[in-house]
Nucleic acid binder design. Structure first.
Length: 677
DNA sequence: AGCACGCCGACT
DNA sequence: GTCGGCGTGCTC
């Protein structure tokens, strides 16, 4: 940028002197990796006033033969492009919706992930809504908002969290496992204590004249946080910004973020890309939840976006949770994050129960030991009881009566399951009803169910506790809250409602099955699911963990999740597994992948693969140290562009048997396929 | 992605 | 002689 400064110093009477016609550098909205850079455009006279950095524009793009969308990133007196410049076609809206901070974040985050900045910008900036914009512009007088008074943040020692915020420190924060009642506008809500703490932290930030961004994994968490915030901040200080909103709502929220007064901005993962007036705090709740991992390219995790933005803007940073992800533990160990725990430990009462049950003859009895039964029975006298199960539906798996083989769809080989007691068995992949099912190995035609889904558990428990209300909460039928009256709440992990006053007891079922799952993160995930459920207990309530022993059970019982993460990380270091190392998953045509991998400066033992993919093409996983990652990402980006521009790969094999997706795809830090490699 | 430019075979 | 095939490369 310095090279493009005007040559002459500005004359005194600037109005009469012709300024050299400035050019606009534009980020074009195109999915093509080779267009992920700035293009210079001349600014026509009619647009000089409105052509400001951050505005959405339309520009001609020769080869696409059309007008493309884009954003002015910067203005310069002259460009370095030697050819003749095209002119900006038009300015979509005069509002600079892409702020310099968000642009810098998008660029850096995309570079780290070997992806396109525009893919991040698209998450950051919703499309323009004319009506919303007009309404916003019509509010001419933006009166100063009333100042906010900070209340002390409880339970973490005097001024500890306030010090973190004021000193722009970075910490991992252990949340307190209990529920609290918060009141706003006469109504009261029960929320996790974590929401109260983060709301208080946001308030302290806003009171200091700075904004706070808080990212939560899902809508249920967002509702809790919103309720806690409403109790301590006026509504004009709170902005919600998430993917679930309609586009007009998102645009309205974005415009509010462009105002100048400090705000508390909450939402799910993409909230990290919100513009924020003087950002002072970034907080992430439960960073181990997979919902924090962005499913769209370039697949940037909330945690990474938070770390980059913290570094760029020098804000305070809080990763809060009941458990500690190995990723956050690693950051604590390298000294990037401090660690803050509650002043006084509040431990939920947790009892592990290795299997073998009392003699209840009901089906559910087979997996609920008698001690858990009696805990539930007693607790149901005074309030709601939570039963956490592993799977939704009725029968999560079906098998052939005759040979025991898992029943599979005749069309696509997907596993069959039963949604409810009366539903016909159907394929879990393609949804086809298995009407004329025949066992593929023994020709049998009768099915039996394997395992228990939430609906089946509900049915059995309802029979065991006649007259008690039974509520099923899962991904399909979400339940946010439960009243204080006795009820059996059967919820799949992660879908547990918050109960008024907390649950009187919590039963964690199917643990054995959850632990048996093949995944790098099973341990972390299970501990997180169980801890989050146990944290919903009311005072004195008992959590029973059924059928699991060992390190996981003792980490839960002693409530020492950080110790578990530490031990887990030692193993990951020994095995060179993430997050001890970073990994890049490279997929594409066999040629493109092997050329790309060969160009990387990594040791041969860190190249895992290639493996053939069913969809065609191959996949190779490359692991690297954190120090190597920037170089590897840059190289993979160059290879992606090369694969996208040279068409030889397609021409060489016109009659290939399976047609793989053209080009090269790169994804960083996707741990799921790691074990298969 | 689209679209123009460019360098070799059948054509009025 | 030239019309047009698609392989190659660029997009301010």
């Amino acid at each position: 940028m310095g090279a493009n400064r005007p040559r002459r110093s500005a004359p005194r009477s600037s109005r009469v002197v012709a300024v050299p016609a400035p050019i606009a550098r534009v980020l074009v909205d195109s999915p093509l990796p080779q267009l992920d850079r700035l293009f210079d455009y001349a600014i026509p006279k009619s647009l000089t006033d409105a052509a400001l950095p951050g505005v959405r524009v339309r520009v001609p793009l020769r080869s696409a033969g059309r007008i493309a969308d884009g954003f002015i990133i910067e203005l310069a007196p002259r460009g370095d492009y030697p050819g003749p410049l095209s002119e900006l076609d038009s300015i979509v809206s005069p509002i600079p919706v892409l702020t310099p901070e968000v642009w810098a974040l998008a660029r850096r985050v995309a570079d780290r992930a070997a992806g396109s900045a525009i893919d991040i910008v698209r998450l950051a900036v919703p499309t323009r809504q004319v009506r919303v914009e007009k309404a916003w512009l019509a509010v001419a007088d933006r009166r100063a908002l009333t100042p906010i008074a900070a209340a002390p943040i409880e339970s973490y020692g005097e001024a500890v969290i306030e010090g973190v915020i004021a000193g722009n420190k970075r910490i991992a924060l252990d949340a307190i496992p209990r529920v609290r009642e918060v009141g706003a506008d006469g109504a009261t809500h029960w929320v996790g204590d974590w929401a109260v703490t983060l709301a208080a932290a946001a308030t302290a930030t806003v009171a200091g004249g700075r904004s706070a961004i808080i990212a939560v994994p899902d809508y249920r968490d967002q509702e809790q946080l919103a309720a806690a915030l409403c109790a301590v901040l006026p509504p004009e200080r709170i902005v919600r910004l998430d993917a679930r909103q309609s586009n007009p709502d998102r645009y309205r929220a974005l415009l509010r973020c462009l105002e100048h007064e400090a705000l508390a901005i909450i939402g799910n993962r993409s909230v990290l890309y919100a513009p924020a007036p003087t950002l002072g705090l970034i907080a992430v709740w439960d960073d181990g939840d997979p919902l924090h991992s962005e499913p769209l390219a370039p697949y940037v995790h909330t945690r990474d976006a938070a770390l980059v933005r913290q570094q760029q803007q020098g804000t305070a940073l809080i990763f809060a949770g009941h458990t500690r992800s190995t990723d956050v533990e690693r950051l604590v160990e390298v000294g990037h994050l401090g660690s803050v725990s509650p002043e006084r430990l509040i431990l939920p009462k947790i009892v592990p129960t290795m299997q073998q049950s009392g003699g209840d003859r009901l089906a559910a009895g087979a997996r609920i030991p008698s001690s858990a039964w009696s805990t539930a029975r007693k607790a149901l006298e005074s309030g709601p009881v939570l039963i956490q199960v592993g799977r939704p539906g009725y029968a999560p798996r079906l098998a052939c009566v005759d040979c025991g083989q898992t029943a599979r769809c005749v069309r696509c080989e997907g596993p069959l399951a039963q949604r409810s007691a009366r539903a016909a068995p159907a394929c879990q992949w393609c949804g086809a009803l298995a009407a004329q099912w025949r066992c593929s190995s023994c020709e049998g035609s009768h099915l039996r169910s394997i395992g228990f889904g939430a609906a089946r558990t509900a049915e059995d428990l309802g029979r065991a506790f006649p007259g008690v209300r039974v509520v099923v909460a899962d991904g399909e039928r979400p339940v946010m809250t439960i009243g204080p009256d006795p009820a059996l709440v059967i919820a799949t992990r992660g879908a547990e409602p918050v109960a008024d006053g907390g649950y009187r007891a919590v039963l964690l079922l199917d643990g054995e099955r959850m632990v048996a799952r093949e995944s790098l993160r099973v341990g972390e995930d299970c501990l997180r699911w169980w801890s989050n459920a146990a944290a919903l207990c009311g005072p004195g309530a008992t959590t029973v963990l059924v059928g699991v022993g060992g390190d996981l059970a003792s980490a839960l019982v002693t409530w020492r999740q950080a110790d578990y993460a530490r031990a887990e990380l030692v193993d990951r270091h020994r095995l060179r597994f993430p997050p001890a190392v970073r990994v890049a998953t490279i997929t594409g045509t066999s040629d493109a992948v092997s050329v790309a991998v060969a160009s990387l400066a990594v040791a041969p033992e860190d190249v895992l693969g290639p493996v053939e993919l069913a969809a065609g093409g191959v996949r190779t996983i490359v692991r690297m140290s954190y120090g190597q990652a920037a170089g590897v990402a840059a190289q993979l980006r160059a290879e992606t562009i090369r694969a996208a521009t040279s068409r030889r790969s397609r021409a060489i094999r016109p009659e290939a048997t399976v047609r793989p997706a053209p080009g090269l795809r790169v994804r960083f830090d996707d741990v799921e396929p790691f074990l298969e490699a």
